Computed example of a mutant assay.
Amino acid sequence: MQKPDHPYVGMWVTADGHVRHELLPNGRYDEARGNRESAYQGRYEVTGDHIEYWDDTGFTADGDFIDGVLHHAGMILYRRE
């Protein structure tokens, strides 16, 4: 489980705002796509600058935080304050 003060907890969005990942402090995530809120949900774990996702529907994905930017599944997401 991630700690509430983990540096990557929060909202991450693509430049066009279409994909939005909210990394919650309890180790869960909620992904919205366009007008579809909560399109994907599941758990995540961060080790160093690497993130692993386990979606509730059964698929897995991963990504890396590089220079404050999340690179995930061919997308680039930026932190939204």
Rank of each mutant, 00 (worst) to 15 (best):
R33W: 08
H50A: 07
V69A: 03
R33I: 15
Y29L: 09
Y44D: 07
N26T: 13
A61M: 04
R20K: 05
W12I: 10
Y53F: 15
T47R: 14
H21Q: 06
H6G: 11
W54M: 07
Y29A: 02
Y40D: 05
G63F: 00
H71L: 11
I66Q: 11
A32F: 15
D64Q: 11
R33C: 07
Y78N: 11
D5Y: 05
I66C: 09
L24V: 08
L23H: 07
T60L: 02
E52K: 02
H6V: 10
A15S: 12
D67P: 02
R79G: 13
V69D: 03
D64N: 10
H18Q: 06
G17R: 04
A32C: 13
R33Q: 10
T47Y: 08
H21D: 11
M11W: 00
S38Y: 01
Y29F: 15
H50W: 07
V19E: 05
K3H: 13
G17E: 15
E52Y: 02
Y40H: 08
M11P: 01
V13H: 04
N26V: 12
R43T: 15
H72K: 01
Y40T: 06
S38F: 02
P25D: 07
H72Q: 12
G58M: 00
G74W: 01
D49C: 02
V19Q: 00
D49T: 15
M75R: 03
M1K: 08
Y78C: 07
H50F: 14
D62S: 13
R20H: 02
P25H: 02
H6L: 07
Y29R: 00
T14L: 05
G27A: 02
L23K: 04
T60K: 09
G58P: 12
N35I: 10
D55A: 09
R36N: 13
